[in-house]
């Protein structure tokens, strides 16, 4: 197998250039999908037979919850690649993930609470999904805190990479323990997104939202990655051309 593409991925100027070229290819489809899904979800989809129009929160809650988890796994994967192959660009990518992930964890929590109010009659219920999201938020905060606490970039990269890997191993265990805890105490759970019976006109906008948000994240990540690479490589000669271009 030809591994040159892999080695080129380790080269900051190459990644900087590629990321710049790729960004619009993710950003525009993301924008189109999200706008179409908004129309589909808010206008075309019929009200839910139980939750009325309240269920439409799913079109922003589910994509945020999905992003929060997906970004954490992306971060851990990038961190592992950076640690194993000593690839600086991968560390830069991991560093670019954390803040975006934390943002969408907060969004999923707040939209979950806003959804919970009409369904449970209260903003907060110790629902296993919400609880697990809350713990995920603390995992993000710990990661960001560790990064901010170590001044030397190379050391911050490696230490936070170990933390991200330990975190991703723990995420399923935490989820399991929280589900298990919930099953004992029998708190109500409304947010079941795995309803197989969801009709197509409800499901299609949801899937479009999920894909749209994923593409959106890739576009944001690419821009952040370029900033991070530029910041880290400011002493190298290729930055000269990139900064003035």
């Amino acid at each position: 197998m030809d591994w040159t593409w892999f080695h080129r991925l380790a080269s900051p100027p190459h990644v900087y250039r590629i990321a710049g070229t790729l960004t619009p290819w993710f950003a525009w489809p993301a924008g189109l999908l999200i706008v179409a899904a908004l129309y589909g979800g808010l206008v075309l989809a019929p009200p839910d037979y139980q939750q009325g129009d309240g269920f439409r929160i799913i079109y922003v809650h589910a994509p945020s919850a999905w992003l929060s988890l997906m970004i954490y796994s992306t971060m851990a994967t990038a961190a592992a690649i950076g640690l194993i192959w000593r690839m600086k660009v991968a560390h830069a990518a991991a560093a670019s993930c954390a803040a975006v992930g934390a943002w969408f964890t907060v969004v999923s929590l707040v939209t979950g609470m806003l959804w919970g109010k009409p369904m449970w009659g209260t903003y907060w219920v110790w629902d296993p999904r919400l609880t697990a999201q809350l713990i995920l938020l603390f995992l993000y905060l710990g990661y960001m805190g560790l990064r901010a606490g170590i001044e030397d970039t190379a050391r911050a990269d490696k230490a936070s990479a170990v933390l991200a890997i330990v975190g991703i191993v723990n995420v399923p265990i935490i989820r399991f323990s929280v589900e298990w805890w919930n099953s004992i105490h029998q708190a109500p759970s409304v947010m079941k997104m795995d309803r197989p019976s969801m009709p197509a006109d409800m499901l299609v906008p949801l899937l479009m939202m999920l894909v749209g948000f994923t593409l959106y994240f890739v576009a944001v990540l690419l821009v952040r990655l370029r900033a991070e690479i530029l910041r880290r490589e400011r002493a190298s000669s290729w930055v000269r051309e990139a900064a003035t271009a």
């Binding site: 009200p47 129009d53 929160i57 922003v60 945020s64 969408f104 907060v106 969004v107 959804w115 959106y216």
Partner: peptide, 19 residues
């Protein structure tokens, strides 16, 4: 929003602020 306006619209607003 069938009476759910005060929950639906803030959710959408917050999400798009974050975006």
């Amino acid at each position: 929003m069938g009476g759910y306006a005060q929950y639906v619209w803030p959710s959408y607003a917050l999400t798009f602020v974050a975006v």
